[in-house]
């Protein structure tokens, strides 16, 4: 088994969404996460607050951000287990973020093989 990271971009609930619509979204995410949990594929996940600081080389210039297009900004991540990148990608296909216009980037965590 390998570790993969799902980076969630965009797909933030646009106001004003009705409480009912938010409920539906919530249920879908819960169901997806629960499925991954039951299959032993979910490791962890954290949401990220919007905005922050960006430091750039070579002089460590600090700017507020990232303020790129809302849909480009990473809103959170999952760490999951899968055999292959293809399998991880298939898992990501079921993410409810696609219903709200977001995207998922799937990346394999590099391992130091002995």
């Amino acid at each position: 088994m390998n570790d993969f990271m799902f980076l969630f971009r965009g797909g933030r609930t646009e106001a004003p969404a009705s409480p009912e619509a938010m409920q539906t979204q919530m249920q879908k995410w819960r169901a997806w996460m629960q499925k991954l949990r039951e299959q032993g594929k979910y490791i962890s996940g954290e949401p990220l607050e919007s905005g922050g600081k960006v430091l750039r080389s070579p002089n460590k210039v600090i700017t507020d951000g990232p303020f790129a297009e809302g849909k480009e900004v990473v809103g959170g991540f999952f760490l999951v287990r899968a055999e292959t990148l293809e399998q991880a990608t298939d898992m990501a296909k079921e993410c409810p973020i696609f219903e709200t216009g977001g995207s998922v980037e799937v990346r394999k965590v590099q391992v130091m093989n002995p």
Partner: peptide, 17 residues
Amino acid sequence: VQSALVEALEVWKIRGV
């Protein structure tokens, strides 16, 4: 109210309830 609901949703959907 709206912004509290949205925040709950955005955090819970990734971290769990």
